[in-house]
Simulated scan of single mutants.
Amino acid sequence: MYANFRVTRDTASDFIRLFVNRRAFGMQAHKPLPNGKVPYFLAKDWTTKQPKPLDNDVVRMHLNGDVTINLYAINPETQRCKWVAIDGDFDGAVEALFKLQWELKQDGVEAAIEQSRRGGHLWIFAETPLLAAECRIYIYNLALRLGVPIVGGGLKQGIEVFPKQDTVEDGEYGNALRAPLGVHRKTNRRYWFYEASTEPEPQLAYLNGLKKLTEAELHTFIKGMTLPENYKPPVHEPYVPRPARDGQQEFRILDYVRPRTKDRRNWWAPCPSCRQAGKDKSGDNLAIQIANPRYYKCWAGCSADDIRLALGQPIRKKQMA
């Protein structure tokens, strides 16, 4: 069973200075789903349905063990991050993280290894927020030079680098990572950083004492480098509606629903069928693919027929010969 703490507001403020680069965050469910997963949900104000801003009180609850939160790396207003985290959960991951930590130290970069359920996380902290795209260039080139595998580029096993994107647009979040020093609800355990006593205050003191990566140093490290070709994001062709056939315009779901948020792949909008049934109070059951809005899916289980009927636009059935 995990230990409970009662940290001060000053301790929570130390955590925020190190880890919080934007105020959106997720909350981990307290109990596993039937499939064993313990998912995170974007924290929202239930009155306005807008993302709830992370504050000192929520961080205290996380550090105390009352709730568990996750964090987003990139601030969309600046495209910068306060930290880079390298997640390793494959066979040999811990050895790979120590190898990266040692090599980073040769550059004068002090990184901290946090234990995790299946391996570890290697954290690098910035003196001031750095461009996410430049941080990714540094870590990807360093890992490949050392022979450390990276997920993507044809590989399914390897490290994952957070942030996973170079940029996120307004309303997007990117990929989140479990915030350190809290309780993982799947194992009911805390996972600490090596090199410090297992309590929030000495852990944060250790992290605060690490030398932080500066922008000038980063520019020196990546001079002449780009993100390796195999890991560059795909270029999406712009969506072009199909020409009208038999006098009928192509059905466009975006003509009938207004997305509330979006991520790297999808817009998220209220599901018309759910709404007709008095459901989808959060207004985000319907995923609409950004690259090709012809494809949409209700994650509550409504079919395309259900959605079209709710909109008064039933799917035309092909006539039998």
Results as ranks from 00 to 15, higher is better:
residue 147 G to N: 04
residue 123 W to F: 15
residue 129 P to D: 00
residue 194 Y to K: 06
residue 132 A to R: 04
residue 129 P to F: 02
residue 203 Q to M: 05
residue 139 I to F: 15
residue 126 A to L: 00
residue 143 A to G: 02
residue 142 L to D: 02
residue 190 R to E: 12
residue 165 Q to L: 11
residue 172 E to C: 04
residue 147 G to F: 12
residue 129 P to H: 04
residue 192 W to M: 09
residue 183 V to C: 10
residue 132 A to S: 15
residue 134 E to C: 00
residue 143 A to H: 08
residue 125 F to V: 01
residue 139 I to P: 00
residue 164 K to W: 00
residue 160 E to R: 15
residue 169 E to H: 09
residue 154 G to N: 05
residue 194 Y to D: 06
residue 163 P to M: 03
residue 171 G to W: 02
residue 152 G to R: 03
residue 157 Q to N: 13
residue 160 E to Q: 12
residue 174 G to A: 01
residue 145 R to C: 00
residue 200 P to S: 03
residue 152 G to T: 11
residue 134 E to R: 11
residue 192 W to L: 08
residue 202 P to H: 03
residue 125 F to D: 02
residue 113 I to D: 04
residue 124 I to R: 01
residue 194 Y to E: 08
residue 201 E to L: 14
residue 200 P to G: 04
residue 118 R to C: 01
residue 155 L to V: 04
residue 169 E to Y: 04
residue 150 I to V: 15
residue 176 A to Q: 10
residue 152 G to S: 07
residue 130 L to N: 10
residue 120 G to N: 10
residue 198 T to Q: 14
residue 118 R to N: 14
residue 193 F to M: 11
residue 196 A to S: 14
residue 188 N to Y: 07
residue 138 Y to D: 15
residue 186 K to L: 11
residue 149 P to S: 08
residue 128 T to K: 14
residue 145 R to Y: 08
residue 162 F to L: 08
residue 117 R to M: 12
residue 149 P to V: 03
residue 175 N to F: 02
residue 180 P to E: 04
residue 175 N to Q: 13
residue 132 A to F: 07
residue 192 W to A: 11
residue 122 L to G: 10
residue 188 N to W: 10
residue 202 P to D: 05
residue 159 I to C: 08
residue 202 P to Q: 10
residue 173 Y to L: 15
residue 129 P to W: 02
residue 195 E to V: 01
residue 139 I to Q: 02
residue 132 A to Y: 09
residue 194 Y to H: 09
residue 184 H to W: 02
residue 140 Y to F: 15
residue 203 Q to W: 00
residue 176 A to Y: 09
residue 143 A to F: 07
residue 201 E to G: 05
